[in-house]
Design a protein around this nucleic acid. Structure first.
Ligand SMILES: [Mn+2]
Ligand SMILES: [Mn+2]
Ligand SMILES: [Zn+2]
Ligand SMILES: [Zn+2]
Lengths: 135, 135
DNA sequence: ATGCTATTTAGAATTAGTCTATACTCCGCA
DNA sequence: TGCGGAGTATAGACTAATTCTAAATAGCAT
């Protein structure tokens, strides 16, 4: 994603496009992917950025609050940040830790349960847990 | 669940039914529920048990390895242990943190994606994220 | 320049969970 | 009746992701 695009994208989401935020967005929003905060920091450092750990975490919080990225909880030891924000589903390989997207059009429901009283639906997410086949 | 039942249940799963394991099982397997390790420790302490934190964590690991309980990752700050081990789904209220079961017969799929090469399916889990309705 | 606000930062603090080294329990056997 | 070993339990040190704090910095308006 080009620099000017990122700047406008942040502005459209009401986020001041500071250098650090553009750098974090540049790494994570580059393509459909799932990265942990540590992975993002490593990428930034490799590219010569001096952004601090605290700023990366602050920035990811701001991004997920405003819908620029999505948090994914599959691994209890850390969060993953998903650059794809529209509704979709995931494969999670428990052997390799790989996390991959399933486009939402590949999953169709014949029935879903009624929602509990006093609640509204925010999302419906399918997680298909995989093992690597050994046979 | 009565004491003798728990003892037999542990034995059937190949787990030596020590006092501490029977106590942890007595709390968690009492009914369908989702408890964190800390919640389980609090319950045990309230009931006068002297079981250590390390033993509770070791025991929960043993229980989930042998299929007596299931780990649920919805909240990135801690694991929940689910006393229901057969396939089912969850409502998660992001406002209250409430986690509730959806029986698997209330969810039917019309289509699911093909599995990636070299993998086999371990589980298919649906998570319906809810907000508390304010209107 | 001066102040004002938002932002960034280093490093301390937090916290769920793991690890380590020691102690206890149980049991078969000398 | 006293070992010895396997399995288990324990306190407390440790780890690592994340959050917090309090001080610096950057931009911008007066
Ligand atoms: Mn779609
Ligand atoms: Mn069923
Ligand atoms: Zn995704
Ligand atoms: Zn459940």
């Amino acid at each position: 994603m080009a620099g000017l695009d990122i700047e406008r994208l942040l502005q459209r989401h009401g986020v001041m496009p500071t250098l650090q935020r553009r750098e974090v967005a540049g790494v994570l929003l580059d393509k459909p992917q799932h990265l942990s905060a540590e992975q993002i920091i490593d990428c930034l450092r490799l590219a010569g950025s001096r952004v601090s750990k605290a700023t990366v975490y602050n920035t990811l919080k701001i991004f997920s609050d405003c819908g620029l990225v999505r948090e994914v909880n599959v691994d209890s030891t850390r969060k993953f940040y998903d650059s794809t924000t529209h509704a979709h589903h995931h494969f999670y390989n428990v052997d390799t830790g790989e996390l991959n997207d399933i486009p939402c059009e590949l999953v169709d429901f014949l029935s879903l349960p009624p929602l509990p009283q006093g609640t509204e639906q925010e999302s419906v997410e399918v997680l298909i847990r995989l093992r690597s086949k050994t046979d």
